[in-house]
Computed example of a mutant assay.
Amino acid sequence: MQHVSREARTIVVGTRQSALALTQTGHVIEALRQISEAHGFGYEFEIRKIVTKGDRILDVTLSKVGGKGLFVKEIEQALLDGEIDLAVHSMKDMPSELPEGLMNGAVPKRVDPRDCVITRGGVPLEELPTGAAIGTSSLRRASQLKAYRPDFDIRSIRGNIDSRIRKLETEGLDAIVLATAGLLRMGWEDRISSPVDPDICLPAVGQGALGIECRESDSGVRELLALLDDADTALAVAAERTFLGALNGGCQIPIGAHAVITGRSEHGSELTLTGMVGSPDGSTILKEIRTGTDPQALGLEVAQALRAQGADRILAELGS
């Protein structure tokens, strides 16, 4: 492989300061360091920890905090101000529209997008007792779990992964629901009692994927990040995020989506996208599944199909 000489520089990487954020940022930096060495970029990397609004407000549910980008706005401002050169986000935290001048430079290969449960005694979700108390901060999870088992007692918990796991004991819960990806990245897969079937609880848009954000004007970083991008993950996430944007979705709406590559042809990769909008109490769950090769067109098609089913009424009631 030919090595191309480039001007050495230190890339400042912005991230939240939670253990998970720092762990996944460390994984990204290690991958970028290897790419830099292999392709002769000559880059060094340093981490800049940034506190976001979502990190500061922990005593209310995300749906009541309001607004989009609760875990990214301050980091994006640091990017725009030139204080950092790229940012590592959990893709599910990123609003469907990015600020002018910023872009997703890479979407690395996705890990397991499903939710999972951690329960007392390790029992699977379907074996939890009647009236089981389940902790989650997500309206999306609460809506679908109530639809699956109306007897569940859904309770709001906030905090980082480790603090939510502690609340299983300290708040007398029978189970908590988390993103599988976070536990995998922390090396805590042995704590998972069971995954949650997407037929029961569809994941959040972008769950299991990372978004590496940078300035559109920074050609050096863009060139580096392009080598980290996973094409299949990027396609799937593009379909999900287009769906989210078309419904103007955020934390205040029980909304989920999951796209997978289901085939290849001369026209490109075939995607199957499942989208969901539900009422907060789980009394209404609307789902659509469509297949196509254009992720943007597919995302719009599923969103329009859900609107035709009555999603507009739910969105209006929730103030979207």
Rank of each mutant, 00 (worst) to 15 (best):
L58E: 07
K287T: 15
E30H: 07
R290T: 05
I261K: 15
G122W: 03
L128Q: 04
L98W: 08
R6H: 09
A238E: 14
A181M: 06
S143A: 15
L22R: 15
R264E: 14
S137T: 07
S193L: 06
A311I: 05
L102N: 04
L227C: 02
S279G: 12
D59G: 00
I289D: 14
V196K: 04
H39S: 11
I35P: 03
R16C: 14
L79N: 06
A175Y: 00
G121H: 01
G14P: 14
E46S: 13
V51G: 06
P280V: 11
M91A: 13
W188H: 13
V111Q: 01
G121T: 01
Q304I: 06
Y43D: 13
R158T: 15
T233G: 13
Q144P: 04
K287G: 01
G135C: 05
K92P: 07
E37W: 07
I261M: 10
A87E: 04
V117C: 05
L173D: 00
I134H: 01
G131I: 14
V13I: 14
A21K: 06
P280T: 09
G182M: 02
L202S: 02
I75C: 02
Y43Q: 13
V60F: 02
P108Q: 02
L184T: 15
V13D: 10
G54F: 08
A311K: 04
G42S: 10
A133D: 07
E266C: 12
D199E: 15
Q17A: 12
D112A: 01
V302F: 03
L228E: 08
A308I: 08
I261Y: 10
A179I: 01
Q309E: 12
A305L: 11
S279Q: 10
D115G: 11
Q304R: 13
E46R: 15
L227G: 00
H89C: 11
K146I: 03
R222V: 13
S320P: 02
G310H: 03
T272Q: 15
S137A: 13
V88W: 05
P295F: 03
G69R: 02
S90Q: 14
T25P: 15
V12L: 10
I118G: 00
T52R: 05
